Simulated scan of single mutants.
Amino acid sequence: MASTTYDKELNVALLAVQRASQLTKSVFHQNAKGTLNKSDASPVTIGDFGAQALIISALQHNFPDDEIVAEEEAKDLRENGQLRDLVWGLVQDTKLSDSAAEQTLGGAVKSADSMLDIIDKGDSKGGSKGRIWAIDPIDGTKGFLRGGQYAVCLGLMVDGDVKVGVLGCPNLPVSDSEPLKDGIGTDASDEEGKFGVLFSAVQGQGAHSRQLGAAGLQQAKSIKMSPLSNISDATFCESVEAGHSSQGDAANIAKKLGITKPSVRMDSQAKYGSIARGAGDLYLRLPVRKDYVEKIWDHAAGDLIVREAGGQVTDVEGKRLDFSHGRTLLENKGVIAAPKEVHARVIEAVKEVLGAKQ
């Protein structure tokens, strides 16, 4: 029986995300990204498949009875032998240089065929009962492809409640004090000590950041959201893609709040990590259409990290995000993350702007 402190779960999740992040960095620097188009028209890369295989392999080794909800399936690799071999080569080559860390993760995936089966183990329907991991192997694939922000995301839900969250953000600066600005990470390199952050949180134990490495885990530092005495001074971030969040509504909300700084647009759950450590203040993800439903893997880890850093995360109506309804946030619309002391004021402005459209 796993300890309710979730020490083992956190350690495995951190190491698994760190190893998967190393694979994604290798893919980017090799300039052979193997881009496909899925049926929903979003790009998929060999990095998505490889990272998912490595993470699920570690989870299966350590927690064989747990269910897994993951974004990718191996169908495209089964139909494309050349792409399968490319992914398999990367999975074989990606190892942490710390032998104890590799042993914890269970070592290498045994074969190309077993890799495909491992990828397909992310087919859980989710729900409100039991232990379920949510994985987004590369959140912000378009950001990844252009050298911007992306995140390797892993969260553990127990009976529908997020207990452990880890984000690997290879293109964010290591320093928690570096301010959030447009273009952050676009000149990212592998220069030691400069880029790559692991964010993590366990329910009731606070949030932490540490430098992303290639071996064992670096020293963790506690992170907190910045105190915000005057909301007009806030820095807010939103999605790069207009199809993911209504940028016009966000601008009107900022105006109502007296915010004059332009928004910082960045891909992925790196936004959650950025505001959790105080580099930014608000994250607005506003519905673009009534039938749009968020996926749980896009928010589970970031939701917990922000809340454990002293923030509040709800939908646009002020309801907590509910991860107990399968693979989607079926009962929620949009996301608002902000420091606790100003969250109610932000929700008020959101309701005014969105209500005026109805």
Rank of each mutant, 00 (worst) to 15 (best):
E294Y: 04
E294C: 07
Q312C: 10
R320F: 05
H343I: 05
E331V: 10
V316W: 04
A344H: 09
R289F: 10
K290G: 09
K271F: 07
V293L: 14
L286Q: 01
L304K: 00
F323L: 10
V293T: 14
E294A: 14
G326S: 12
P339Q: 05
K340D: 03
K351S: 12
D298Q: 15
D298G: 06
G355L: 13
A301Y: 05
A338E: 01
A349N: 02
K271P: 01
A279F: 03
L354I: 08
V350I: 08
E341C: 00
V335E: 06
E294L: 14
G355I: 11
P339H: 02
A276D: 02
V316M: 09
G273D: 09
K333W: 03
Y272P: 00
G280H: 02
G278K: 04
L321G: 03
A309M: 12
I275Q: 01
K295L: 14
R307T: 13
H325W: 08
K290C: 02
G334R: 08
V346P: 09
R277Q: 14
D281Y: 00
R289P: 00
P339R: 06
H299G: 00
E294P: 03
V313W: 03
S274N: 09
L282P: 05
R345M: 09
I305V: 09
Y272I: 02
L284C: 12
H343V: 06
L286C: 04
E308W: 04
A337Q: 03
G355W: 15
A279Y: 01
A338K: 00
I296P: 10
L304M: 01
I347N: 13
A356K: 11
I275G: 05
L321D: 03
H343L: 08
A338L: 01
K290S: 14
A276E: 08
S274H: 08
L330D: 13
I275Y: 08
I305M: 03
V316F: 11
W297V: 03
K295S: 13
A349W: 00
V342D: 12
I336D: 11
L321N: 03
E317C: 07
E308Y: 04
V316H: 04
G334K: 10
H325R: 13
V288M: 10
S274K: 02
A344E: 15
A279N: 02
Y272A: 12
P339V: 03
R285Y: 05
A276L: 09
F323N: 07
K319Q: 10
L304T: 01
A337D: 02
S274Q: 13
E352I: 07
K333R: 15
G302F: 02
D322V: 07
G302T: 04
L329S: 06
A309S: 15
K340G: 05
G302L: 06
K351V: 01
G326Q: 13
R345C: 01
A338P: 00
D315F: 11
A309H: 06
H299W: 07
